[in-house]
Design a protein around this nucleic acid. Structure first.
Lengths: 224, 224
DNA sequence: GAAAATTGTGAGAAATTTGTGAACGAAATG
DNA sequence: CATTTCGTTCACAAATTTCTCACAATTTTC
């Protein structure tokens, strides 16, 4: 299972993030300041860092700068509200995402998943939502441990949506990325495939949400 | 939704850039020469310009020089070849980036995103006010950790106001930026959407304030 | 305080967008 | 080569949103 390093001077916040992280199945380690974080990062290889910006002595950016000298590990930064400039600085230094305090732990975890998914450029890793699992390598989908036979286009469509969890993709974008850049068909073709895909997904049809006037997105919610 | 102005004498190239721009979610407008570009820029406020250097009569540098007299809008220049001289001149005049023809549309869009991010017009970061959080990527609004379903226009309107916190936006400005530069409807339509948006926001309706005789603004105060 | 200007609001028609079933040819399968 | 599956388009129904308008309420101006 994946390793998570939580870096924050606030012990309660560390604890909070840890609790949610562990629910998601991470091995969590905590660091109370930059020094300890860098030391921990030297000793262990982490799969994701959750890094607070505002810390005494060495702030989050300093830590990130150090980290980035040797590693491309995914980093999510915690910023106080209204720190537009900080956001920018964070992204330039190579943060993968940020979230403003106060945040809901659920949202943080959703972003953690999304970042891991994105940074796992490894197309061969399968993507899982509850009891639905998508494996790009073998091009198979498992639903309740049972193989689901999807037609090629539907599989590609599902995979694209899954790789962009929580991000709305317009019909045009989907056509471009799934059908190809030189496809000039009817945009509504997407709808037809979505319909068919939803039928195949059974109760998991709720994963695929229509964003009225914009497009479609895949969003996983615990209760499925 | 951001406005993009594409300035090039080559109609096919304009069309190409437009197509990709629209996939990325921009409202796109085209200008076939410097004159038309300046006129369009006077009428509409754009978030980014894509400007060809080589054009008959008034070339890209002339256009940029004019634009920079009144505006700091991000500009990406298209240069014919890998001309060091062009790059230099462009940067001196205040271009934000350049790209040599022939270019891949994907790369152009990557640069557009990068420039917008640098200029602080990041469209993808979520914005939080107390217990209200707006996420452009997933087009969701969380109010007290609960999802708020807003119609497209209301979401765009809220996002625009949020991205301009404490800045009064006139109805005309809102129509132009949210509805699009080519919308010619009743100005009072804005009022109707504001009303509906306020209803949806519940106690957070106080966020959206009427500035009598001018327009609307979003202002967050701790006590909500 | 009356008049004028501006904004709030309710209701409903109009327009837009999406869901869906059906049809048809292309492609894959055996 | 017959059969099945797949991809696409289309038309219509259903759902949702957008827009306009009239009038009420509020604020400003005179």
């Amino acid at each position: 299972m994946a390793n998570m390093l939580i870096i924050d001077d606030d012990q309660h916040l560390r604890k909070l993030v840890r609790t949610y992280g562990e629910v998601e199945g991470f091995h969590c380690q905590e660091a109370e300041d930059g020094e300890h974080a860098l030391e921990a990062a030297r000793k262990t290889s982490f799969d994701i860092l959750v890094l607070d910006v505002m810390m005494p002595d060495m702030d989050g950016f300093d830590v990130l700068k150090e980290i980035r000298l040797t590693s491309q590990v995914p980093v999510i930064m915690l910023t106080a509200r209204d720190e537009e400039y900080d956001k920018l600085k964070g992204f330039e230094l190579g943060a993968d995402d940020y979230i403003s305090k106060p945040f809901s732990p659920k949202e943080l975890m959703a972003r953690v998943r999304a970042v891991l998914r994105r940074s796992g450029k490894n197309q061969t890793d399968s993507i899982t939502f509850g009891r639905l699992s998508i494996d790009p390598a073998s091009r198979t989908v498992l639903l309740h441990s049972q193989k689901l036979n999807l037609p090629p286009k539907e599989f590609d469509l599902l995979l694209k949506l899954a790789q962009n969890e929580r991000v709305v993709l317009s019909r045009e974008k989907l056509l471009q990325t799934v059908w190809g850049y030189n496809y000039y068909g009817d945009v509504r073709t997407v709808d037809t495939h979505i319909k068919s895909l939803r039928e195949h997904l059974g109760q998991y049809r709720k994963l695929i949400q229509t964003v009225w006037g914009v497009g479609y997105k895949l969003e996983y919610m615990e209760e499925i």
